[in-house]
Simulated scan of single mutants.
Amino acid sequence: MAGKPVLYYYIGRGKMECIRWLLAAAGVEFEEKLMETSEDLEKLIKDGRLMFQQLPMVEIDGMTLVQSRAILNYIATKYDLYGKDTKERALIDMYTEGIIDLTEMMLQVVTCFPDQREAKISLAKDKAKSRYLPAFENVLKSHGQDYLVGNRLTRVDIHLLEVLLYVEELDSSILDPFPLLKALKSRISSLPNVKKFLQPGSQRKPPYDEKIIEKAKKIFKIQPS
């Protein structure tokens, strides 16, 4: 019997958090090996374990996988969260890419210079309200179903819930003009596996603070953008 997946990253959310979310939503228990220093990362590189010399990395089913999209695709396929046919998968991929764009915009808030932070937050909120949230509200309105694709849970519902929670951390009232997104957020949050992941003490990572940001910059040798 295969062991639990092992996730290699650090204490922050970053590009691993969506992988944590997807595994948790699928009801899959996983272990984490968290980098504490840049030397921890360098050791993985020197040992030849990181194909492109960067994290995230996941050991699963006897494989060592890198590149977050590849990891997410594998997990979604394995646990039947990737639609029933190629048309559904195309929609899932398209919606997911939009979610990734918004998520990466919010990650820039973390990596920028402190004096740029307010401007980055304002930009992320503006794009969320004017571009991304209306798009997903319209998808739900167009078909009147409980989920984004195929009227059943897929990976994109999990990805969307994650990013909705992130934008609410920037502005708690940001979803008020989007009743269908608010309903989807409540619906997905109530699923047993997701509800468990949202509880205190889970492997879900907290919002960034200065301590986490500084640790990430040291481990990954990040320069502000």
Rank of each mutant, 00 (worst) to 15 (best):
D157F: 03
L44Q: 08
L50F: 12
Y82L: 04
S173D: 15
I212C: 08
K87T: 12
Q199W: 03
S202E: 07
V58G: 05
L22D: 04
L191T: 02
G27N: 11
I99C: 06
F113A: 13
P192V: 00
E162P: 00
G98W: 05
I212S: 10
D80Y: 11
A76G: 01
Y132Q: 11
I174M: 05
K129F: 05
P114L: 10
L140D: 06
L72P: 02
L55Y: 07
R204V: 06
I188C: 06
A76Y: 06
L34G: 00
I158Q: 01
P206A: 10
L123A: 10
I158E: 02
E210I: 06
S130T: 13
L140E: 09
V167C: 01
E214D: 12
F52P: 01
A128V: 02
F30V: 03
I75E: 03
L123H: 11
E137I: 07
I45R: 13
Y8H: 11
L81Q: 01
A90G: 11
R20A: 04
D115P: 10
A183S: 14
S122N: 14
M106N: 05
E169F: 10
V109S: 07
L153W: 11
C18N: 15
Q145H: 14
P5A: 01
Y8N: 04
I71G: 01
E59P: 08
T77F: 06
H143W: 10
M16S: 04
E39D: 09
K205S: 14
P134V: 09
K87E: 13
